[in-house]
Design a protein around this nucleic acid. Structure first.
Lengths: 210, 210
DNA sequence: GATTGACTCGTACGGCGTACCATGCGACTG
DNA sequence: CAGTCGCATGGTACGCCGTACGAGTCAATC
């Protein structure tokens, strides 16, 4: 007989996976090295054999959330717009599944999964005939749009506790911000639809030989 | 004779201004309540009379960076596109002057300065004839674009120390990410130009009755 | 002179990231 | 078989953090 089912050995992968779980459950502030070690059934300092420091854990957790498996059916379709939309919507969805990831984006290095998504995007646009001079701009514009949309959305998601608060605050300020109030900009928004529609507008602007 | 030039009294405004200075000088991590109090020549706990907690300081510091004084010449020009571009470029510039502000954006409440910028944007677009059904999408798209662009840029700015590092890492990965490498996506970019150009593309897509 | 309210701050507590160092263990060496 | 060496684990301790608590100062008011 062994010990009553001891934990599997530590590993970078297990640490990162558990960190993601923990952040999902307790939020970013709840992710501390001590709690992480607890969840792993190990001592705190053991983590540091596999990981440089806490920043490292953040970097790895962020990147691990951003894997991309490509479009569903056979690749290499002619529909470049569909490919772009699919990848970017998946990007956003992956991050919204782990809302803390949005607040991790600033100041973090580009992990391999981000890079390979950018590589894919470059490829699609390049084959679609976007002029070389516009390519970088196109890539950055799309990236920026997705990041901004995701961060905004995650932001509002998180302040769910404060939604009534927000609503009240806005009601009190409706004279000061009448247009916002009138357009109900911050309330009952169809986020997914708005994301898709805005992405469409952007792609309209970016389309080659328009 | 007085004390050798004692500090002026504490105030919310002075605290916020000093917090901004401190974050500029030492980065976000360098902004601690103790250091802030030191710089103000006061005891740590005195801050808490004027401020709820550290989160409050963050919120106030972020919003204080985002004041907008409007376009240079007389307002109410017919050139709605120019007005939009001016405000958004100023927005981005304001944040880049304080790169830490970008990493504060996620998870923060909308302060009065952000709201009044959104209000202004709504007004301009609405008067420019953007359809009501598209208005929210247009506002969010522009906001998202600006936020994403600012965060990306600030990110790269901050990793200036790691620029050589990044360059090296990319060189080592050029087989894995050939298109990125070829387009020099991450190197010697004209950020300001790319921002302006991408914004132009987006506005092209958003323009009313296209 | 007593009371009050606005304001300041010293002390202390619990929690954090992590440096340092001792330990356990399996594999390889002689 | 004894000795050595690497990988891997984790206990202790340090310095720093945010901030609760409550005592102190001081000017205005009655």
């Amino acid at each position: 007989m062994q010990e009553p089912r001891s934990e599997p050995p530590l590993s970078r992968e297990r640490i990162v996976a558990t960190a993601v779980e923990l952040a999902d459950a307790q939020g970013l502030d709840g992710l501390t090295m001590r709690r992480l070690a607890d969840r792993l059934g190990s001592g705190v300092m053991s983590l540091y054999w596999h990981v440089d420091n806490k920043e490292d854990v953040f970097d790895l957790a962020l990147d691990s959330v951003l894997e991309y498996r490509g479009p569903p059916q056979m690749a290499e379709s002619q529909d470049w717009r569909g490919q772009v939309v699919h990848m970017l919507e998946d990007w956003r969805a992956s991050m919204l599944r782990h809302p803390w990831s949005a607040s991790l984006l600033p100041r973090r290095a580009l992990g391999p999964n981000i890079l390979s998504r950018l590589e894919l995007l470059s490829n699609i646009l390049s084959r679609a005939g976007v002029a070389d001079a516009d390519l970088n701009v196109a890539i950055w514009s799309l990236w920026n749009y997705v990041m901004g949309a995701t961060i905004s959305r995650a932001n509002f998601d998180l302040s769910d506790d404060g939604r009534a608060d927000t609503q009240q605050r806005l009601a009190g300020l409706s004279e000061r911000y009448p247009t916002i109030e009138r357009s109900r900009l911050l309330l009952d928004n169809d986020w997914d639809g708005a994301f898709r529609k805005g992405l469409g507008f952007l792609l309209d602007g970016l389309s080659p030989r328009r």
